[in-house]
Design a protein around this nucleic acid. Structure first.
Lengths: 140, 140
DNA sequence: GTTGACCTTTGAGCCACTGGAAGGTTTACG
DNA sequence: CGTAAACCTTCCAGTGGCTCAAAGGTCAAC
């Protein structure tokens, strides 16, 4: 497949994929006779792993490194490498979920208030706030 | 309060707050005799609103603009401005929650597999994947 | 044979900060 | 009273992860 199909199927953009290659995150792609990059299912997998790890909050180099291990058939090694991060991330995910719950409640509230044309002047009050506690939790 | 107290209480950094001021996101702060920036509870509120809106995914200018409206006592106007975004965001939040659920399941799985020293070689398979559908959903 | 959708490269720009240097101020301690 | 640490100030450079534009080559369809 060509770069934009890979992009589409992996949920990213062609520009980003070229950028990954330029940065050495992805290996140099094979080229067809026309000079176009050619990719296969393995490449797709690799880009998807990168996308997944990125969405986990790993930085691009780290994501690329691990996706590379996986592509080399060393998924076990990758996973072992990831274990501490997995454990850490699980609690972050839990925290994020709690945030989202809170957020959704607020949004639902705001929406309801607006639909009833009530005033929503309390957006700056302390009500329901536990200081910046949950923001502090965000900071790694 | 001074800049770093404001930072601490709003869950951001002093540098970011100075940056906001420099960019006109926050109004020019009052200064004490020593030249230090001075902030009050209103400023705290405003920065918090910005932080909240940013965490909703709004870009900084937009967040600043809305926080400004709120600070001007036009919370209603702000909220009305936000309504379509709120509605949109709610579904995004729902999608994100689903992602997180999926993610946590994967993480739990990975963790369990690792702890049992099983092989985790299936990290590149299609299993359990619905193409990049949920990634597509991410793209605004 | 030309229109339009792809692909190529290069290089600049963007967002939202972050960090460092070089210096002034305040606070706590001995 | 001195000094060390912990603040604060400005300015400027750098970062990550792209994104976009320009200028051009390729290819499939009509």
């Amino acid at each position: 497949m060509r770069v934009s199909e890979l992009a589409r199927r992996s949920g990213t953009t062609a520009t980003a994929i070229r950028f990954y290659e330029a940065e050495g995150i992805l290996p140099t792609a094979e080229r067809g006779e026309n000079g176009y990059r050619r990719y296969d299912e393995n490449d797709l997998c690799r880009v998807r792993v990168i996308a997944t790890l990125r969405s986990l909050g790993l930085d691009l180099r780290e994501a690329g490194r691990l996706a590379g291990m996986c592509a080399d058939g060393r998924c076990d090694a990758m996973a072992i490498d990831l274990l501490p991060q997995i454990v850490a991330r699980r609690s972050e995910v839990a925290a994020a979920r709690a945030e989202l719950d809170h957020l959704d409640a607020q949004l639902a509230n705001a929406e309801r208030a607006l639909r009833m044309e009530e005033s929503v002047t309390n957006c700056c009050t302390e009500e329901g706030r536990t200081d910046a506690a949950h923001h502090q939790a965000d900071a790694d």
